[in-house]
């Protein structure tokens, strides 16, 4: 039985795959604790670069960038999750309707158009309508490309919930609003939460589109890091990278656990 599943060397390839994926991150994480000012020499374990991130000469710039990144990600992911939840209700519970195929294509459009093309077209749009590039333009762009990422887990979750629960609520004289608020929404919640988390990380992660629509003087964490890295990789960048790595891993683990816990539908 087991024989046909086994191919010699595939385990080695898998381990090689994981090595390739994790080695660069691990190396940077280790070197972020380097006590030396040189990035090549190991000067013993130290937290000085973490201190530098919060109190060093660049702390103000990175602090502002981090604040921008977090607030944009928070607003964009929440808005996108709300829009995606409404869209999922229409797509999954709306029966057959005119324009369903087109709506589906529209929701997924941000996934089909290459990122750099989205960046260019969004910049051209803002420039044409006369919107000065800055916080607002970044936020609008982020809301747009976050929608499909929020939609996918929400729609997947909704598809797995049978209509009978709401039907029972309606039979017992619940209004549609009550059936939604008390029955459907709680059942959908794991999907909504993982959609929101995905959108949050996608927003936090974005560099290319933000770089086009941010305007002068406005920075998010990725664009600030990119600006620094252009002058060479400094130890404080490695500390910031490791912190962001930690945040990403925390979020993905949360999404994974929420999803697994929500796997079972009563």
């Amino acid at each position: 039985m087991k024989g046909v599943r086994h191919y010699p060397g595939f385990l080695a390839m898998t381990l090689a795959c994981l090595l390739v994926l994790y080695a660069p991150l691990a190396v940077v994480a280790v070197y972020s604790f380097n006590g030396s000012t040189s990035i090549t020499q190991w000067g013993g374990f130290s937290l000085r670069w973490y201190g530098d991130v919060f109190t060093g000469p660049e702390a103000g710039r990175f602090g502002q960038a981090a604040w921008n990144s977090l607030t944009i990600a928070l607003i964009a992911s929440t808005t996108a999750a709300a829009i995606a939840t409404a869209a999922a209700l229409a797509m999954i519970r709306g029966g057959a309707f005119h324009g369903r195929q087109a709506s589906f294509a529209l929701i997924n459009l941000p996934l089909m158009v290459p990122e750099i093309v989205i960046a260019v077209s969004t910049l051209i749009f803002f420039s044409t309508v006369g919107l000065t590039t800055g916080y607002l333009t970044i936020l609008l762009a982020h809301i747009t490309f976050c929608i499909p990422f929020a939609y996918l887990p929400i729609a997947a979750r909704l598809e797995g919930i049978e209509g009978t629960y709401e039907q029972a609520a309606r039979d017992l004289y619940a209004t549609r609003a009550q059936a939604f608020r008390l029955i459907l929404l709680p059942l959908m919640m794991p999907g909504v939460v993982s959609g929101w988390l995905l959108a949050f990380i996608i927003s936090l992660d974005d560099f290319i589109i933000t770089n086009f629509v941010k305007g002068a003087g406005m920075e998010t964490l990725p664009t600030a890091i990119f600006g620094s890295v252009k002058q060479g990789i400094k130890p404080n960048i490695m500390a910031i990278s490791t912190l962001m790595l930690g945040v990403s891993v925390l979020f993905v683990t949360a999404a994974y656990l929420v999803n697994r816990k929500g796997q079972k539908i009563p």
């Binding site: 660069p24 991150l25 992660d205 990278s241 962001m244 790595l245 990403s248």
Partner: peptide, 16 residues
């Protein structure tokens, strides 16, 4: 790794 910032991953690879 996919959920780790792409910029950070690319910079890490360059560092390595």
């Amino acid at each position: 790794p996919y959920w780790v910032n792409l910029l950070i991953r690319t910079v890490s690879l360059k560092f390595l």
